[in-house]
Amino acid sequence: MEGLKYDNRSNKNSPYRIISQSFNLGFYLVAPLIIGVLIGLYLDKIFGKKPSFTLIFILFGTIASFYNLLKIVKEER
């Protein structure tokens, strides 16, 4: 599927962008960690290898959290 042609002029300096991002920041940064913990607990329950999967996915969630932070910083710069 081809992309639409459009004029890509959006104002990056709009204050509302930053306001909305900062309202979301707390939840957006914690969410990957929560997802990681939930997946880890679920896998541990299935395979019965407590707490190995949980630890692996906590690490993964932490990396994903920092990736989200990096994305926000890159966008707002």
């Binding site: 309202f23 979301n24 939840f27 957006y28 914690v30 969410a31 990957p32 929560i34 997802i35 990681g36 993964f60 969630g61 990396i63 994903a64 990736y67 989200n68 994305k71």
Partner: peptide, 20 residues
């Protein structure tokens, strides 16, 4: 690996939208 992180990031959007 960055692609996997992007997928997780999309899911974290759902979580952050709904829980906020």
């Amino acid at each position: 690996f960055v692609g996997i992180l992007e997928i997780v990031s999309e899911f974290s959007k759902v979580i952050s939208f709904s829980f906020r």
